[in-house]
Design a binder for these strands. Structure first.
Length: 481
RNA sequence: GGUCCCAUCGUCUAGUGGUCAGGACACCGGCCUCUCACGUCGGGAACGCGGGUUCGACUCCCGCUGGGAUCACCA
């Protein structure tokens, strides 16, 4: 049987990295098995679903390169277009006496919960409407519709005895006592189906063979399985992935800072790095740390998934990003860096070759595209501003003469203005004044970059070019006076 | 509180009865060096506790402790 997995985000906010990791694992499993990966949009909650969130989810997945075989823009993969199907499913259950109307109000339900809590009983629904409607009348019960005065909900009649066994591909066997499962609402009084019900119908209709999701859904699983059984359907196989936690050990959420895919994209991270980080959080292949997409697909297996929650480690993600930054072709980097330069409001160099040379000097000093661009400030913008502390320390009166001599030497250079030509000029000045390279390089560095940290001084000079180098040296000499 | 899940360095993890418990990130130190990085070499750092099973437990079983998830007319 062809494996079919799905990722079913709800368009009620940004695409969160803990959440997208579940999607990634579902994707990898499907690809590994040469099956199909389906993207479905769980938008039954019309109140909270937005077009912006949907757009962000779709664009995030495309950016990550997680492609789907079926899904948007096909409307059939939106729950909002399947309401008639859910109604049909609910009618079937009603007809067969496996669901019933519940007339309890929200206030009553709340009181019920509080009383249960007070008396240390389980807080679930007590089933008081279970037998309120005569079995013979159940098939005639109309679905809720507030505006038509049918202000009640439909509940699933969950079995009270026996147990439900979840043979999870990652967690192993989990047994739930059916007595613990209360009768959950499958249709709200506003006529909208609830998640647990819609999901079951979708997973069944779309032929899902494996449901891969976060283990926060594990408690839902026996309920969903019972709905499958009631509908006369076979539940899929389940694989519940451990959660991703924040540094404080609680489920990762917005309050942990940058958590959306877009946030990392905008911070200058590469999709390869994010994917690589996410896949190694909860899954392993021996000691291997770096995985290409093809390798992830080739090696992925639930057997190598861990069972325990993992804490999101921003440092390791940064290290991975650095790894991909170092090995990225300069040509590609040059293209990718431009939007970040634009975002800073700095001019984008027109000379592609020059841009690449510039990046080459910076790439081992930055871990993200944002860092790289910030570091490139002195290359991109004229005039530079000298850091006062650096200038006070290195642009002192005694360096004026050597700096002037260097300026003259550099100005006298003909031909290629490159590292090989610049170095001898430095050496002549060093010899003339009897000073060490460090004593000259730092003042020059401050003069050319405004600060004390930069790529090798010869590289900087070569990339800056003769005119800008001389201008900045003269400006610095003037400042030293 | 009920139910369910989980438990190897600070973090991610390898390990499937016999290993000096391995790797990675981070951290510390040496080397390289014009600064900062990169690179490189080296270092500290873990099997939560208690019972079993076994000739032998990080590995298997039970209990405890600890952490997490979930208990909506959200998904």
């Amino acid at each position: 049987m062809t494996v079919r997995t799905r990722y079913a985000p709800s368009p009620t906010g940004a695409l969160h990295i803990g959440n997208v990791r579940s999607g990634l694992f579902a994707y990898l499993f499907a690809r590994h098995k040469r099956g199909q990966f389906i993207l479905r949009i769980d938008d039954t909650d019309q109140e909270r679903s937005t077009q912006e969130s949907l757009d962000e989810i779709l664009e995030s997945l495309r950016w990550l390169g997680v492609d789907w075989d079926e899904g948007p823009p096909d409307r059939r993969y939106f729950q909002s277009s399947r309401f008639e199907r859910y109604r049909e499913g609910a009618r079937q259950l009603l007809r067969e006496g496996k669901a019933y109307p519940c007339y309890c109000t929200v206030a009553e339900l709340e009181a019920m919960r509080q009383a249960a809590q007070r008396e240390h009983r389980k807080p679930g629904y007590d089933g008081r409407c279970r037998n309120r409607t005569a079995p013979a009348d159940l098939p005639q019960v109309a679905l809720p519709d507030k505006s038509a005065g049918r202000d009640y909900t439909i509940r699933f009649r969950s079995p009270r005895v026996g147990e439900t066994v979840v043979d999870d591909l990652i967690k192993g066997r989990a047994v739930f006592d059916n007595a613990e499962l209360d009768d959950l609402i499958i249709f709200r009084s506003d006529g909208v189906p609830t998640y647990n019900f819609a999901t079951v119908l979708d997973d069944a209709d779309f032929g899902m063979t494996h449901v891969v999701r976060g283990d926060d859904h594990l408690p839902n699983t026996p309920r969903q399985m019972q709905i499958f059984y009631a509908l006369g359907l076979q539940p899929p196989a389940y694989a519940h992935l451990p959660m991703v936690m924040g540094p404080d050990g609680a489920k990762l959420s917005k309050r942990h800072g940058a958590t959306s895919v877009f946030a990392y994209r905008d911070l200058g991270y590469f999709p390869e790095a994010l994917l690589n980080y996410l896949v190694r959080l909860g899954w392993s292949h021996g000691d291997q740390e770096i995985f290409s997409r093809d390798e992830m697909i080739e090696f992925f297996d639930f057997a190598n998934c861990g069972k325990s929650a993992g804490i999101f480690n921003a440092d390791k993600l940064l290290w991975l990003n650095f790894h991909y930054l170092k090995e990225r072709p300069l040509e590609r980097l040059a293209a990718e860096v431009k939007p970040f330069i634009a975002k800073r409001g700095w001019p984008i160099p027109g000379d592609e070759a020059w841009l690449q040379r510039m990046i080459a000097t910076l790439r081992e000093r930055a871990k993200t595209l944002v860092e790289l661009v910030d570091f490139a400030h002195f290359y991109l913008v004229d005039p530079i501003t000298l850091d006062p502390k650096a200038a006070a320390k290195f642009l002192r009166a005694e360096i004026i003469e050597p700096l002037t001599a260097l300026t003259d030497e550099l100005e006298a250079l003909d031909g290629e203005f490159n590292e090989a030509a610049v170095q001898p000029a430095f050496e002549r000045v060093l010899a003339k004044f009897g000073i060490k390279l460090g004593q000259l390089a730092q003042p020059v560095r401050v003069a050319l970059t405004g600060g004390t940290v930069s790529p090798g001084i010869y590289e900087v000079i070569a990339v800056l070019g003769k005119a800008r180098t001389l201008a900045r040296l003269r400006q610095a000499i003037a400042a030293a006076r």
